[in-house]
Design a protein around this nucleic acid. Structure first.
Lengths: 221, 221, 221, 221
DNA sequence: TATGAATGAGCCTTCATTCAT
DNA sequence: GATGAATGAAGGCTCATTCAT
């Protein structure tokens, strides 16, 4: 119905607005302002602000799948490391703003079934991705025998918790500490003996380029 | 300036309102409605809604200390278990509403220095509490030698992440899974050999009774 | 310019929408929704919503003439009775919704010359119709000598007032009472001595079939 | 709760706005503009625009009772005449605007239970008033024996219908004609033999002075 | 002939905050 | 100490209408 271009325009504006003003100030106007369209146009394409946001979550999920494929061919340990570092990324990362705002949005989910539904889908994808990595690692012998499903849940909870505490408390230590402790206490029994989580990942989990068209990205130095 | 009674009245009303309507609907009116005072009274006692909320966080912290003492004399393992179960409490827990709303509030912290400051204090207390338990456990020989500081951070992140995913996704599995995996993968190396995390805690981490004056609490039915 | 078929499609949709949502919710979208055309199409065929509505009133008038003819050959008293019962129809009548909405529209006429003009034409037709019946009744000897013009005006006012009070107050008594009192106090001096208004009409004043193509009508159940 | 003065201010503004812009343009802003208060103030005193309007209908009713008393002591025929002329008032009457707008409001009643309820109360009062006059007239011998209840309903319907047709069609004839015909055909059998409806009433049914504080009223030339 | 997209103006309502009393 | 009244700024949403295609 809404053509891909318009959809992208609105979704990108939503992303920008979210990063710049946060979820609780994510007004229709704030989105429209980052668009060459009027506020009314948003309501032409989406029935309500809520539906627009739900569509945005879905848009994120769509992008996630593609980004996964980009590191598909890497060995399991590299993929896992990429994941860890994506989650526990440094505070200078330009995704901090986004994740911060997205936490606000997630905090609404208990009150909003539509959001909750979409976030569940997102959770499914994420867990499946990690499970697949773990499973592949077991197969390849890089990882020990274990239950990928429960380990995935544990890792996700831990990383998410660390990230949230980092953002909300402004305490970057959480990331560092949790990365190290995860490596030492959780992954020690998951990785094959002798295998260790590299200090830094060799592949980076790719960014959602749809939101970073013009600008630098992983500028060196 | 504001006497203790008035303060408590307002803080209790804030707690109630938070549980009933969530943070984003926590209007001055919503709080006043749960008070025998007028909306204006709130602004007489607190300069702004923001300050009131900040004061509320502080009020929570004040209560926390007292509650800690109530299980002070228990052996370290029991205290740890109480902590675990407090965090990973079942979905029927009447504190779910509060934690859900409080997550909304925490999600504002990145945008609000006042909140962030208070939440940091809260984080300090919580971490210290866990560190103390861990330290005592080492001393008593119930726990193995380890760095209480980093383990506390790991546990906090993991539990918090599990709880948040439970609430926001409506997926209770996270709690169960994470409790089990934490016991098996993290605590296995923290508890002394042969010591295990009990399936259920013997002491309950005490509730904040200031908010549960009149009503039932843990009355059996 | 606009061919008869398109015109009918739009007019019928307007009728439907009017019945279903009332005049104040009679948006262009509401009409288009009951059409296989787009909202824009309405503005292609009519310069404005106002003109469309004005055209609709005219369309009603056009239909009225034809329906009149259908009872043309009946004796004056029967025709008069048909009129009375059409106006003072029971609350189960499926025309209630239409008349209710049409009252809203009529209430706009004082502010809208275009509507007023059309409604005047409608009033003319209606009054003429009644006058003709009355005149024919005088001629045929069924009615006493009287001034058909003023009596028509009196009847119209009385019936209309009764109907409006019924609809707006939800008080069906008005219809019954006014029918009886009209018979006893007004028509007593209009009908020839010994002639009485039948309790129920033998002919029904015909419906506008253009709006009831497919559906039942007065099919018995 | 809302003190009488404020209430009057808002109700008077509502009256003015209604007269000047009609019901369908009776926005909160339109009312506030005729007040020295802000739009928000309206919502402080009334929960919604709808409730404000409902309160306005009630305010009208309150006023009506008092105005009735002002002609309480007049003989029945005079009172009846006052009523007739109030209803069938000339087009220059400054109440035309109000009645016109009020018709719009009444036309919403079928869709709005709150309005309908209030309008029913208004209908009750009006009918009782006329019934009382009729009853008194029978007692005093000025009127013939008849059923005041049904006659009141008939008169009300007739006058209301005439007025509505006058306003909506811009046809003043309705008033004149209906007044004459009512006198000749309806009241002829209601008034005692020899008693006639005066061409013009001697008492005027009093205006609602709450809405006409400063200005002229019936000042001659 | 028709439409999808878009928009500006406007509406109702909410809310933190102020202030005179 | 406390409150009732009030308000400005904003927000989500609607709708008649326009216009390029």
């Amino acid at each position: 119905m809404t053509d891909a271009d318009t959809r992208h325009t609105i979704m990108a504006a939503t992303y920008e607005a979210l990063c710049e003003v946060g979820y609780s100030d994510l007004t229709a106007q704030a989105i429209a302002d980052r668009t060459d369209r009027s506020k009314s146009a948003l309501f032409y394409h989406y029935d309500s602000r809520e539906e627009l946001v739900a569509a945005f979550i879905e848009y994120l999920i769509d992008g996630f799948d593609g980004r996964l494929e980009q590191i598909d061919d890497r060995p399991p340990l590299e993929q896992l490391t990429a994941f860890v570092d994506w989650f526990l990324s440094g505070p200078d990362d330009d995704q901090v703003a986004f994740h911060t705002a997205f936490l606000e949005l997630r905090a609404q989910a208990p009150y909003n079934e539509l959001y909750r539904e979409k976030l569940r889908e997102s959770d499914d994808r994420l867990r499946e991705a990690i499970e697949t990595i773990l499973r592949n690692g077991i197969e390849s012998g890089d990882f020990q025998e274990h239950d990928p499903e429960t380990v995935a849940a544990l890792l996700l909870a831990t990383f998410d918790g660390a990230r949230i505490r980092q953002f909300t408390l402004g305490r970057d230590e959480y990331l560092e500490t949790v990365r190290e402790e995860t490596a030492a206490r959780i992954l020690a029994d998951v990785l094959a003996p002798g295998v260790e989580l590299p200090a830094e990942s060799q592949v980076e989990f790719p960014r959602d380029e749809r939101f970073h068209d013009g600008d630098a990205g992983d500028r060196p130095e």
